[in-house]
Design a protein around this nucleic acid. Structure first.
Lengths: 128, 128
DNA sequence: AGAAAAATAATAATTATTACTATTTTTTAT
DNA sequence: ATAAAAAATAGTAATAATTATTATTTTTCT
């Protein structure tokens, strides 16, 4: 894998935000610095970053995948109302990881907790 | 929501299998009983079943969503090699759910653990 | 049984993602 | 520093999953 400024820019943006942007949103941002970048380049590099462990892909089932530059162990909360993804300081325990590993008799490369519900902001808006 | 035999057949099939079939695979199966069923009908009913809590949608990021008729709390393991989804008898602890709930100050409707790696069968095949 | 409401089949349309190819950028070796 | 080789890119076409549309059929209610 050779260096490329476009990939570097994608990575910088991913690490700078707490949002969990989609490929399209990443594309819009990186475009400010590289106006000629192609959406296909964004997708290709996101796949490279995920495969090399420099980013995470999060699939919520809302039609488009989200990406996360924070690769430390953490959980996610998905609001089914506003479709926001929120980081949580909650990770599977080593006990849970070991249990999973011995249950499937295979390797464990990633382990994560996912929660869904209606977030605080949406609850407040519903009341109005 | 009115009764429909097609939806009933989809539900039966989902509850009868431990695989985590995609809409397309469900379509192929239900077609044996209802040869004229439409793929759009499968999608529509899967959405209805998921929304009413009678099935789960699982997004692995492999391009197509998977469905699960087992709605009891359990975790999943996704083999990134053969793309199989395997049920695990591992669920988030109440402690983890409470922690998530107080961290986001929103409701928790679903909570699940997801693991990825290379499953036993794929490890054996790689050795050959 | 007959009217109203909901569901379906068939297909068109949409949207996210990947594939392709000629050109440009990056690396490597001189 | 420069030229060849390898990798990456932009632009666009193609693919594949999902959703929307509409005329017809099924289900429910009275």
């Amino acid at each position: 894998m050779n260096y490329s400024r476009q990939r570097e820019s994608i990575k910088q943006y991913l690490m700078s935000t707490k949002e969990h942007p989609t490929a399209e949103i990443i594309y819009q941002h990186v475009k400010e610095d590289y106006p000629k970048i192609s959406l296909a380049t964004v997708y290709r590099n996101l796949t490279l970053l995920v495969d090399s462990g420099e980013a995470l892909k999060i699939s919520t089932g809302d039609g488009t995948d989200h990406y996360d530059g924070n690769t430390t162990e953490h959980g996610h909360y998905y609001c089914k109302c506003c479709h926001k993804l929120i980081d949580l300081d909650i990770a599977p325990t080593t006990g849970q990881i070991l249990a999973a590993s011995s249950e499937v008799l295979g390797t464990i490369e990633t382990a994560s907790l996912m929660f869904t519900g209606v977030c605080k902001d949406c609850i407040i808006n519903e009341e109005k």
